[in-house]
Amino acid sequence: MPRRAIWITLMAGLPLLLAIAAFLLMRDIYQPYGTRLLNIRAAEANEFTLTAHTGSTKSLSDFRGKVVLIFFGFVNCPDVCPTTMLELGSVYKVLTPGEQERVQVLLISVDPERDTPELLAKYTTFFGPTFLGLTGTPEQLAEVAKKYGVFFQKSAIKSPIEYNVDHTATVFALDPRGQLRLIYRYGMAAATDRMVEDVRWLLRD
C-alpha cells in the first residue's frame, strides 16, 4: 500500500512539477522584442518633472506601479510621430482594461515653443484616451532628452513658427519600478503583438 501511494504521487506529481518548472523557466528565458538594457541603471537616473497637458506637474515617479512607454516627438510632425503614436495606440488597444490601467504612454515634446499644453492634450489623447503629453522649458526638455540619449534640433527653419524638428524616434519602456528596461529603435513599435508581449512581461516582472 505505501508503495502504491508513492507510485500515485509520482505519476500525478511529476508532470505537475515539470509543468511548474517549465513555467518558471519560460518566465526567465523570455526573450523580449525590445533591446534589453543589460546594466539596469537606478530609477533616479530616469527621473524627470515636466508639465503635463492637463496643466499639472508630473514626475516619472508618479507612475510607479505602471509600465511607462515614452516617446519624444511633436505635434507638427506629420510622419514619424503620428505613425509611432498610432502604433502605441494599437498596443494599448490590445491590452485588457486591467492592463491598460497599469500602462502609461508619455509623449515628451521636443517642440516646447509650439506645443502648448492645449495642443498637446488634443493631439496626445487622440491616439489613446489616457496618453499624456508632457512639455517644459527648453532647458528642462534638453535635460530629459540627455538622460535618455535623445537628440533633437530644429531643421528646415522657414520662420519662427515654421520649422521641423529632427529627433530621435526611439520608444523607451520602463517597468513598474521606474527602471528603464527596453528600448525600441526607429520603426520597431510597428510590431504590435511583440510589443504587447513585452509590456505584459514588464507588468509581470
Partner: peptide, 23 residues
C-alpha cells in the same frame, strides 16, 4: 546628429547611436 555634443556619455551601449530622424 554630427557629434551628439552635450549627450550624456554615461549611457549604456544599447542607448548609444539611437537613430535620429528628420524630414
Amino acid at each position: 546628429p554630427n557629434d551628439h555634443l552635450g549627450m550624456d556619455h554615461r549611457h549604456s551601449p544599447e542607448m548609444k547611436g539611437l537613430e535620429v530622424t528628420g524630414m
